[in-house]
Design a protein around this nucleic acid. Structure first.
Lengths: 350, 350
DNA sequence: CTGAAAGCGCTTACAG
DNA sequence: CTGAAAGCGCTTACAG
């Protein structure tokens, strides 16, 4: 391993001068030093640098599931920022587990300059300890009870739920079910809240057997959709609170040969790359993804600038948007001629 | 920041003893030390530890595109291994750029104990320099010209291409096109090679205008599929060499209102979560994904075990598998009654 | 502008 | 089993 001393010896200067040159200061023997660096193939030791400087130029990124396209997009956004600012990303997957999250955060605290976290639950208090360690923390996608003291980039989940509800009500549905996500997470709780309360405001009641709670994974969307379909009186419309549960529900509907949207309308939260290509093309509540990652990382890096370090925490809340495609329609028997016809035809050709 | 000295002082022992306790050695005053650690909230400095030990317990993972579900799955597999072995992952996205890859590798060399790399091109020689720095390197998904000296986990891409070709030939197609990936990558080159040569062996010629090369991104699949459809004599079957280009091609086919598989059959490489839910459900060449990540990370960690450090490089090559769904069928006018009928019906109800 | 020196927080051979 | 000491590779205030 070639060190700064080797470079110094070869260039005929002191290690201090090499260090200054490398950090961009003007030195007399810059050519000789550069030559020595090149010839020796010198690269500074990150460990030594951060031991001295107390900075790692590394950001911890903690997400519940990297294979969820939403989080993959968020990470990509964050990566574009860290790259431009010469930081790197230490990535951890918590598999939606608080325990795993605790371990990861404790481990990261002494390895990174800051953390962007999508917490597994709102109740977890470990992230608050991160603050004690003086490591800036930004929440993305999900908040925390007591998270007011941190920066955050969130989405207006309540309003997204409302948009989904009003879309279904507008189509004439009254038997409306929801498959929500973990109720101890911000998006799980808020999307359900927004959805159910907008339905109530429109005079539509959601009975307990229509008000199901899953865990944001495909399998739970699948199982809960099956259970809805086996009800004596199944719903005519279904809201699924994230992309993976939407896919699970759609699989269940396919497996049970339920016509979508002829028999059951489906509206999901979060768009998918494949959304327009699915059978049928999915109606969804969409939101920024890459942008959320970009904003969260920018908020975090700002905290390293002494000018902003003490600023009051900022909560950026982005809007959702309804994308109407073909998975939602008026309920069966609603007298909508076009819809009824389509359904019959599909039934025949299936 | 609380250091090992603070803990030592509080426990009434020397820092050396604290260090030994923390590393699992038996010491007399373990209870007092543990108490001091807890009360002070001590956590060792990673920088100091790795400066001393020369180990970072961090693995660099370099992929071309983290939002590609294939790479997301590979990373997830790697993460499960690093977690179990108490390593962490420094993640970098190269956006399929060799320049970016060079930067990333140079940066990582002094920050990690080893690297798993899916190289942007086969020609890039930078990864070979990583070896000079004595940082073990394992290839995943993609190989390098000169990569024989490294461990690698690959897929039998040539055979995957062959499977796709024989499936299409078996259905009776003779006008067969391919949208291949970057020809300076292992999978891009080999999938095309396997596909084209299997067609040749079956007596099917692929004219130049059917033999297209994209860049593994959705947009290139879209554009190239459009260009195929605008040919005076478009193909009746299309092979797309990765998941994203398959989606792009499918979008193009939808946009041009081409019946799949009635007018054009489509077979992709790499399955998708949504594969069965697409219009139509996709026939694909599938391969292990999470498992590739697991195997690659295991190969890498083995290199840290003195027992295996000097072993000759291992190339693990996994098999692909044809998954037949509904996007492939005999060519139009081939006399296959069932198919022809279906096509007509679809045409009517569209 | 430059060098000698101290020190960042650990670990580990060396004595005891 | 334990402690004093050296040293991992840098950076930076302090003199000059």
């Amino acid at each position: 391993m070639v060190t700064i001393h080797d470079v110094a010896a070869r260039a005929g200067v002191s290690p201090a001068t090499v260090s200054r040159f490398l950090r961009g200061q003007h030195v007399r023997s810059s050519e000789k030093i550069q030559a020595a660096v090149d010839e020796l193939g010198y690269w500074p030791s990150a460990a030594a640098q951060s031991l001295k400087s107390g900075r790692t130029y590394t950001i911890g990124v903690v997400v519940p599931d990297i294979t969820n396209p939403y989080f993959a997009a968020v990470v990509k956004g964050m990566e574009s920022v860290t790259r431009a600012e010469n930081y790197r990303i230490l990535l951890a997957n918590t598999d939606e587990s608080s325990d795993r999250e605790d371990d990861v955060l404790a481990d990261m605290v002494r390895r990174v300059d800051g953390i962007v976290l999508a917490p597994a639950t709102e109740q977890d208090q470990t992230p608050l300890h991160v603050r004690d360690a003086d490591v800036p923390l930004v929440f993305v996608d999900r908040d925390l009870a007591g998270g007011e003291h941190f920066d955050a980039v969130l989405v207006n989940n309540v309003d997204g739920g409302r948009q989904a509800a009003e879309h279904l009500v507008g189509l004439g549905h009254t038997r409306i079910a929801a498959i929500s996500g973990n109720q101890d997470t911000t998006p799980g709780r808020c999307r359900r809240e927004g959805f159910v309360s907008a339905l109530a405001a429109a005079g539509v009641d959601v009975p307990a057997e229509y008000d199901l709670v899953g865990n944001f994974r495909e399998e739970s969307g699948y199982q809960l959709a099956l259970s809805l379909l086996s009800l004596p009186e199944p719903p005519t419309a279904l809201f699924t609170a994230n992309n993976l549960m939407t896919l699970g529900a759609l699989k269940a509907l396919h497996d049970m040969r339920v016509d979508v949207p002829g028999q059951v309308s489906l509206i999901g939260f979060d768009d998918l790359d494949t959304g327009p290509l699915l059978r049928p093309p999915l109606t969804v509540i969409d939101r920024p993804m890459v942008e959320q990652g970009v904003l969260a990382m920018r908020l975090l890096l700002r905290r390293f600038d002494p000018q902003y370090t003490g600023d009051t925490p900022r909560h950026i809340v982005l809007d959702t948007k309804l994308i109407e495609r073909a998975s939602t329609a008026p309920p069966p028997g609603s007298g909508d001629r076009r819809q009824a016809t389509t359904r019959t035809r599909r039934g025949r050709s299936a």
